[in-house]
Design a protein around this nucleic acid. Structure first.
Lengths: 133, 133
DNA sequence: CGAGATTTGTTATAAAATAACAGTTTAGAT
DNA sequence: ATCTAAACTGTTATTTTATAACAAATCTCG
């Protein structure tokens, strides 16, 4: 699976970012290499997502690189998103319940989205300290 | 918990709809009663969601009434969304895995979003019939 | 009543995503 | 090596979704 130049630019930008990036943030970052319109970013993102190299975070309208090395195992992924610092952690989850519901309701399952929102360990700790003062 | 007139209009529209409605679809439907701008709809939606009477479907940018009678139990809800007919089914799910991950990572969990996409029983059946011909 | 909070209508703008189209590159078959 | 079909590109315009900001109206309840 070979990536085009644009796809590589977008993937690299996502990998180097500490936080999820919006499509427009990516566009700004990639003006130097020649990007000039949203469609270019969205097209690259679509392919990366199709290949399991990136994810869209639905509750954030933002995108992240898959945390796995090259090709993602495509198991059921979930994301924990910190409302304070914006970091998103990818983790694997057991989707038994969802598959069970789908099966028992003859629902032909194609995609699963699981996102949890709250405060990451670091930010939760800081907030607690703040409350003490 | 008393709803204002606008909140009641929006809730009724959502309850009478067979499918999730976008904020702008709601706005169109509610012009007769006097709505004239998006903010009116979004404000009512915010309150309804706050009170557990409605949900936002993140993968659809659309809104649905809670399927429970008056006050929602606020257990962990998930939605199965049909990509063919657009219907969304609310169902309860065991979030043990997510809570466990959150606990073991000291993540202060505030909100959980679970949406599955695919084809509902009815639409899957039709598609299969079609493939036979 | 009257002070404070909440809700309202409104205009304007921001943010996110897609449509459409012609030109270019790429990969594979012959 | 050449041809062809598919995929990708750059670009302009538009659509869809969501917020900001602010003054006026309304509700709450001591």
């Amino acid at each position: 699976m070979t990536l085009t130049a644009n796809q590589q630019y977008v993937l690299t930008a996502l990998r180097e970012a500490s936080n999820p990036l919006s499509a427009y943030a990516l566009l700004e970052q990639l003006r130097k290499p020649g990007f000039s319109a949203p469609a270019q970013v969205y097209r690259a993102l679509d392919k990366l997502i199709e290949h399991g190299l990136a994810y869209r975070l639905e509750t954030l309208n933002a995108y992240v690189a898959c945390s796995h090395q090259s090709h993602c195992e495509r198991n059921l992924m979930a994301f924990a998103i910190c409302d304070t610092c914006g970091q998103a952690d990818e983790f694997e989850v057991n989707d038994g319940d969802l598959r069970h519901w789908a099966k028992s309701h003859a629902f032909d399952l194609e995609r699963t989205v699981i996102e949890i929102r709250g405060r990451c360990a670091t930010c939760a700790r800081h907030r607690n300290k703040g409350a003490m003062s």
